[in-house]
Design a protein around this nucleic acid. Sequence first.
DNA 1: AGGAAATAGTCGATCGGTCGTATACTGGTG
DNA 2: CACCAGTATACGACCGATCGACTATTTCCT
Lengths: 206, 206
Amino acid sequence: MGRTSDAREKIITAAQTLIEQRGYSALGVAEICKAAGVPKGSFYYFFESKEALALTVVDEHWAAQRREWTRILGADAAPLERLRRLFEATEEIQHAGQQSCGTVSGCMFGNLTLEMSNQTESIRGRLQEIFDTQVGMIDEIVTEARERGEVAVADTHAAAASIVAQLEGQVLFAKLYNDTGRLSPLWTNCLAILGVTALPQAVAGA
Amino acid sequence: MGRTSDAREKIITAAQTLIEQRGYSALGVAEICKAAGVPKGSFYYFFESKEALALTVVDEHWAAQRREWTRILGADAAPLERLRRLFEATEEIQHAGQQSCGTVSGCMFGNLTLEMSNQTESIRGRLQEIFDTQVGMIDEIVTEARERGEVAVADTHAAAASIVAQLEGQVLFAKLYNDTGRLSPLWTNCLAILGVTALPQAVAGA
DNA sequence: AGGAAATAGTCGATCGGTCGTATACTGGTG
DNA sequence: CACCAGTATACGACCGATCGACTATTTCCT
């Protein structure tokens, strides 16, 4: 065995931040390496190409976000309450990002979708899988809520997809106006999409 | 007077297509000129910089889209009917774009928002103005519908913003999956956001 | 002739990517 | 314990291509 290094992790971490802030195409390998404090020569030891790095970053970021979603959506609470907590967590994360780097950075997957989906099939495919999974996770909650008679939707999958779309759209505006307050209508709109009229006390929210 | 040329228009047209298909950062001036059939040397005679071209393209595209929105939303019909026609027109335009170039290109303003809003303030400002105007146009219709007692929303402006957000989100998915069918839930979700329960016959739609 | 319009060529910088070599660590061998 | 062989890691100089940008010059119309 040779010596060990944390350069790979440093590159991924730096790239994740930079991609969120500045996008992918506008980013150079040299810049990533500089931010990571890793010489450029090392980059191509750890990654086959810039695109391979992007895929790794996407996977890593999704793994983390998926854990978070699973934790929130799997909690011990009423389904709609869990859904509400997911939106709150999203708003918090965006707000924290804004505090730390000055601007709302938005959803990395949404950003990369609009930037790269027409260019690299591999990333497009991965992004499709991610959003499919997200919709599936929401779908489960919506189905559960429907079984309890708390929501009135015919097609739970379509409703779930629309909720994710609403989320992406509002995050886009939060980024454009650099204002996480734009995310506050999420919960109300979600209820509207789900056809919720009367709400159990515990889920009413803010 | 010297000689005349349509090179400026050709550059704008080509840039519009290319930006929609491939984004801004990933695009080179040389490539734009080649696609436009205009020598590279001419570019900087007509435009101060690549960014200036982007601004021109955005303005031109918005001018055209605004005319279309004004035409549809100003038509002689019930307010909700006009809103429905706007979504249908959006779906048609995306479908036509897909037929002509193979992929759904999405909304240029949304694409540029996620790609550039954290980079060039001038473009971010212009995009904010555009979306402000869009929301304002929708707001007018929603307000009109509320006066007729056809919708039940407290904050018409917030509702309008959410409708535009829903639109951008669904267009994002239509682009990612290259499937304009993703746009079909727009009308139903719009009604849900507006709190519409019973619908006048003429507006019920598909 | 005069001047506006149009253009080709080129600039330094940077792009993603490669290569050769230096360095540090590990598992064996004596 | 000392040492060496072998391998994983580290590193920066360098590649051709292309980037956005600019300018010197030619072309064409009045």
